[in-house]
Design a protein around this nucleic acid. Structure first.
Lengths: 152, 152
DNA sequence: TGTTATTACATGCATACGCATATAAATTGG
DNA sequence: CCAATTTATATGCGTATGCATGTAATAACA
């Protein structure tokens, strides 16, 4: 009891859990980065296509997309330019807000996302499928989601 | 049952859990990156100092350190050069293997790591402490560690 | 409604990054 | 014990990144 807020968990338990989650993410991500489906497109670029496919209406403003990613807004802006040059994404002015740009996948972008995605989940399943039991995966998902919701 | 390996969990359960863990990591990392303790040193650079403090004997070869990180070996090599220039890290030839370099913290590096670390855990605790119960943090740690061990 | 502040996106610039490769030392195999 | 292979680190080079800032449009508010 120090007089600050009243968190449920001790400092050590909190930070140890975060440390473990972070290290697990690094370990898995190292394997993922080396997978063959990320030869054409980097993981970060794929993540943009993935987010555009799964966002409501298949359209997203640059700022909103940026909230899902770790890269800066200027970096995302330029990445979108590169994805546009490859014919995977289109920028359209937002009719409701003339400052904003609506991003969406082209048909080619959808195809590529689907193609990479199919390989990706297959390889992920090979890599992780037997690491935890089905119940443990459910619990990991629940806890991760709860953690995410708490910080946003 | 397809004839491939015999993973415990279904494809969807596995990938949904990974997706949730990854998104949680992104959300937390976005907050962390904005914290004031990472004004002098980037999160990636701090992670190098942190790893050098916690590794056995306080010394690590570049390749071994690299395994804990997401950046490439050449990037780490140059980052170490920059940290050396700042007087935070030293490179010493490994007496047992003349190809290798032993990395360790200088006194200044230790001090800075400690200083940033103290702020960092405090802010992390503020951010995450009330997100989960103590038991949930323990379980998140256990599952993350199990996942990590399975892929390494 | 006119002024100020805020928001969304783009661009200049310095730098960090990854890939391919070079160098040098250790290991392996005949 | 020598040649071929592998391992550890460093460097050249093109590119992606972040920070600071610019431009334009919306929002706030007096």
């Amino acid at each position: 009891m120090t007089g600050t807020s009243n968190p449920a968990a001790s400092l050590k338990v909190t930070t140890d859990a975060w440390e473990a989650l972070f290290r697990a993410q690094v370990a898995v991500m190292r394997q993922i980065t080396a997978m063959p489906e990320f030869g054409k497109l980097s993981m970060r670029e794929y993540d943009v296509l993935f987010n555009l496919r799964t966002c409501p209406g298949g359209k997203s403003r640059l700022v909103d997309l940026n909230k899902q990613l770790l890269i800066s807004q200027p970096s995302l802006s330029r990445m979108v330019t590169r994805l546009e040059d490859q014919g995977l994404v289109v920028r359209e002015p937002d009719p409701n807000d003339h400052r904003a740009m609506q991003l969406s996948l082209t048909e080619k972008g959808r195809k590529l996302q689907q193609e990479i995605g199919r390989e990706h989940v297959k390889h992920l399943h090979n890599l992780l499928g037997s690491a935890l039991s089905e119940d443990e995966f459910h619990e990991l998902r629940r806890l991760s989601t709860k953690l995410r919701d708490a910080v946003q």
